[in-house]
Computed example of a mutant assay.
Amino acid sequence: MTTILDPLTPDEAARRLAQGRAVLIDIREPDEFARRRARGALSRPLSTLDTAGLGLTDGREVIFTCRSGMRTAANGQRLAAACGGAAHVLEGGLDAWDRAGLPVETDAKAPLEMMRQVQIVAGLLVLCGVVLGLTVSPWFLGVAGFVGAGLTFAGVTGFCGMARLLALAPWNRPARA
């Protein structure tokens, strides 16, 4: 059963935030939030919501957002339970907020989101495996098969070996002060 939270347009959400009546909670993962977010939004990743809660006690309305609104819509019941008070979803998510001309903070120095990195590397490996398999040796088609099997395993188990390897890459390590 999915609980449908009251949707708010970006303009209505911005109005409530400006009046101090609401707080904007971004449920995306930390790597997504670090790269691009609505100004003033608080990060409360969906993956930690059950254990960490929201940590809010001031009685303001909660407006949940993600990138496109799909995650908030799909997790309405969990989000409603986590806030314990008046809750809404930002219609269209951060993308709609940005299209409405509302303030967005971007950190171009933050690495690409891990999922995008996995998609790029997996796509390149499959493409190279197929091209090399057709032009050099059919044995290279095994690369495409291996990547497909890895992605299937990741989807079934929730463990992505490629994401673990990419997390060790120099561009994904925290900068040293």
Rank of each mutant, 00 (worst) to 15 (best):
T152L: 15
A149R: 05
A154G: 13
A108M: 06
A82L: 07
T51S: 15
G55V: 07
M70T: 12
T51Y: 02
K109A: 15
D95I: 12
T48R: 14
T135V: 11
L112H: 01
L49P: 09
R78A: 15
A122C: 09
G148T: 12
T57E: 14
R44I: 10
T152R: 03
P111T: 01
L127G: 12
T65G: 13
A41C: 12
A110G: 05
D58I: 12
E113D: 09
L112S: 02
S68M: 10
R67E: 00
S137G: 04
K109R: 15
Q117R: 14
G85H: 14
M114V: 14
Q119I: 00
A81H: 04
E113A: 15
I63Y: 01
A74K: 13
G123T: 12
G69H: 09
E61Y: 07
G101P: 06
R44L: 08
D98R: 08
S68C: 09
F64M: 08
R44E: 10
C66Q: 08
G155P: 13
G155S: 11
R67N: 13
F64N: 08
T135G: 06
R44Q: 12
L151C: 08
E113T: 09
D58E: 15
A86V: 08
G123D: 14
P111I: 00
L46K: 13
G59I: 04
D50C: 03
L112K: 02
Q119F: 00
T48G: 10
T48P: 01
W139K: 04
V147P: 02
R99Q: 14
Q117H: 03
L90R: 03
R78K: 15
G142T: 04
L56Y: 04
L125I: 07
T72K: 04
C128D: 00
M70H: 11
S68N: 11
E61I: 08
R44F: 09
V156P: 03
M70L: 13
L125N: 04
V143W: 00
G142I: 07
T157C: 08
